[in-house]
Amino acid sequence: MQSDVPPLKAWLLLGLLALIWGSSFLLIKKGLLGFSPDQLAAIRIASAGFFLLPFILRRFKTVRAHHWPKLISVGLVGSFIPAFLFAFAQTQLPSGVTGVLNTFTPLATLIIGVLIFKQTARSQQWIGVVIGLVGTVLLVTASANGDLEFNRFGLLIIAATICYGLNLNLIKHHIPDLGALTITGVSLFLVAPPALLYLLFATPFAEQVTVADNWFPLAAILVLGIVGTSLALIIFNTVVKMTDTTFTSSVTYLIPIVALILGILDGEPFYLQHGFGMAAILGGVWIANRRKKQPFNTQR
């Protein structure tokens, strides 16, 4: 029987998880210094999928025929498409702002659950969604002079959070009989080969990787895929087993703080409007999930 008080190890792992996922956006930024957005996304997916393979080999036997189409959908919607959306968005968005916008995922999950999967929602949850939307508008229109200047690349991040929200609902409603590591590991492996083939045969990756200046960006992307996706998943599931999803979901509130701090340290601007936007989104997520036994989790 689990104790009501999470052990110290759980807190340390939660902090490590926040650091890993919070730094993912800065790693994307560094990866783009040497590779195009589509190359970055392909490297990220391929490295994550193949790295997880040894951990999931035994789990393939639990996958039945009716699971495969669903797992392919999870791989595409939950990993493949968002990886490309984030990469292209960060060509025009600061990493810190991207990290905060990603926090819209729990609200997107709620909206999709109600509109598509016919879940019920309390008025309190809709209030949280509205507040979160206000914060999102503030973030995608922030400028140095305080005027509203719409940055359409912010919509790519919102599209990615919608993908995550759809993915979480698909897993919850259509694949309840498989474990989280099996679902994520197998689905990532299914989309890893297409990503690798695209990288090798549709982009000049082979020529670029021989350039010394590109080795650091490549290392950043590999860390993003292997540590930021694969190892983070293992840590996440470890914390869930040690505590519960309520405790683990608190990483949602830590990720944007880490992302913003790292962005500022890397020389990114931070406007007052960014602070208001972050506060609104985090406040909206907190209100929407308050008193819920199992809040939705944020993916990377």
Rank of each mutant, 00 (worst) to 15 (best):
L17F: 14
L133N: 06
L19V: 14
A89H: 06
K9V: 15
I131C: 07
I158G: 02
T182E: 12
T243N: 04
A192T: 05
E149Q: 12
T105G: 01
D266A: 14
A279F: 09
V209E: 12
F55W: 10
G78W: 03
V186R: 01
V258L: 11
T298Q: 06
L8A: 15
G283C: 05
A83L: 06
G165M: 04
I235V: 15
A206F: 12
F205L: 10
G75W: 06
G49H: 03
K9A: 15
W286P: 04
L53Y: 04
I175F: 00
F296L: 01
G31C: 07
N167S: 14
L265T: 09
L218G: 09
L168C: 00
P204G: 11
I127L: 15
L110G: 01
V227G: 13
T248H: 09
G283N: 04
K293G: 11
I221A: 15
F117L: 02
N169D: 04
S187N: 02
K61P: 04
V140I: 15
L17V: 11
A108R: 06
K293I: 10
G165W: 03
T109P: 03
G154R: 03
N214H: 13
F205A: 10
K29N: 13
V134E: 01
R122P: 05
S24I: 00
A87S: 15
I234Y: 07
F25K: 06
D244F: 08
S73I: 02
A144K: 15
G185Y: 10
R290S: 03
K241G: 06
G267M: 03
L71R: 02
F216K: 14
Q299V: 10
K30E: 14
L138D: 00
A232P: 07
L40I: 11
A288W: 06
Q2N: 12
